[in-house]
């Protein structure tokens, strides 16, 4: 189950990363800049000791 979820997420990331191959539209130019503010919640996912 865990492996299936991880494989699914990896596939989604690969598909998103490969999107420029299918749709080559670009909006940004070198030198453009972005300022961002983020706020939200934080889920504790795991802690492993060794």
């Amino acid at each position: 189950m865990k492996k299936t979820i991880i494989m699914g997420l990896v596939m989604i990331l690969i598909l998103i990363a490969a999107m420029p191959i299918f749709a080559r539209s670009t909006y940004y130019f070198p030198g453009d800049s972005v300022f961002s503010i983020r706020a939200g919640v934080d889920f504790p996912a795991f802690i492993s000791f060794y």
């Binding site: 420029p20 503010i37 983020r38 706020a39 939200g40 919640v41 934080d42 504790p44």
Partner: peptide, 24 residues
């Protein structure tokens, strides 16, 4: 529940400049 932590909060500020059409 193994983390012994509760739901928390996150806030951040970031600034990035584009090196190419696709990367910043």
């Amino acid at each position: 529940s193994d983390t012994h932590l509760k739901l928390g909060g996150f806030a951040s500020l970031s600034y990035q400049a584009y090196l190419s059409e696709y990367t910043a």
